[in-house]
């Protein structure tokens, strides 16, 4: 039995700018079930990041409705429904990795002992055991991003929202992190929303791929992936994988005119 975690219907968001209104999102309808790994893909300006930010109550929609765990995004935030991972790791340079992971726990008022136990647990989840005492500058970019994922996981949110978390990393590190992210997803059974502009990344990770296109920002295709949950990197060479990737590419092309 599946439960709907995020439900958007008729969602609209229009920014008023000096050049007139910009339709960042228009008539967006989507259901995300518990345990889904949903990727949002599309060219820049298609509203994929805006959509994620609306889920996190970082932006206010101007029309339609959206619920997270059956609540408004603000209420969901107060209930610690989601952890958010940004494109940059954004670790505080003056805090060690462990202290960085404790940041949300301190803010949310967890007890000292609980904080320590949680830091240990999430460091293990992202394969950073033993690095708790290091400062961010002592870690590579990929390790820093893993630490920021650990920080988002520390307070046990059911939903993980990730905005191009690996966008700034090189491809080899990225492959490795993608593999680890899938393992983490399998172990924690979280619902993940993942913004990317890489077709292979979206196809490799997702159970559901949401293809978006700009002006106005809208959903042009939702692809349910038939790939098994267990995905070695080699799966990217199978015909099934290539077929889905092809469909994503077609969806992107249909929604976007490159003549502009």
């Amino acid at each position: 039995m599946t439960t709907t975690v995020i439900e958007a219907s008729g969602l609209e968001l229009t920014f008023q700018t000096s050049d007139g209104p910009v339709h960042a999102l228009k008539d967006v309808n989507l259901q995300i079930e518990k345990g889904d790994f949903v990727s949002f893909i599309g060219p820049s300006g298609c509203g994929k990041t805006t959509f994620l930010r609306v889920m996190a109550a970082l932006e206010q929609p101007t029309g339609g409705s959206i619920t997270v765990n059956g609540m408004t995004p603000e209420e969901a935030r107060k209930n610690r429904a989601y952890g958010y991972v940004f494109q940059a790791a954004g670790l505080y340079p003056w805090r060690t990795i462990a202290k960085n992971i404790k940041l949300p726990l301190e803010i949310m008022g967890y007890s000292r002992a609980d904080q320590d136990a949680r830091v240990e647990a999430v460091l293990k989840l992202v394969d950073l055991e033993g690095f708790g005492g290091k400062y961010p500058w002592q870690l590579s970019g990929g390790m820093q991003q893993r630490a920021s994922i650990a920080r988002a996981l520390a307070f046990d949110a059911d939903i993980l929202l990730m905005d191009e978390p690996f966008g700034a990393l090189d491809e080899i590190v990225r492959d490795h992190l993608n593999e680890q992210l899938l393992q983490l997803w399998a172990r924690t059974e979280k619902t993940i929303g993942f913004v990317t502009h890489s077709i292979p990344e979206a196809v490799y990770l997702s159970t559901k791929i949401v293809v978006m296109s700009p002006r106005p920002g809208r959903i042009t295709d939702v692809i349910e992936s038939p790939l098994p949950k267990e995905r070695p990197l080699e799966i990217r060479d199978t015909p099934e994988f290539i077929e889905i990737a092809h469909r994503v590419r077609e969806g992107l092309r249909a929604g976007h005119s490159y003549d502009e």
Partner: peptide
């Protein structure tokens, strides 16, 4: 803006934002 947004996702109060982020 990203740092401010991050604290927002934790529901941090302005005072917490001041002591934990702005002041350092």
């Amino acid at each position: 803006a990203m740092q401010i947004d991050l604290l927002k996702t934790y529901n941090a109060s302005p005072a917490q934002g001041f002591w934990k982020l702005r002041l350092p």
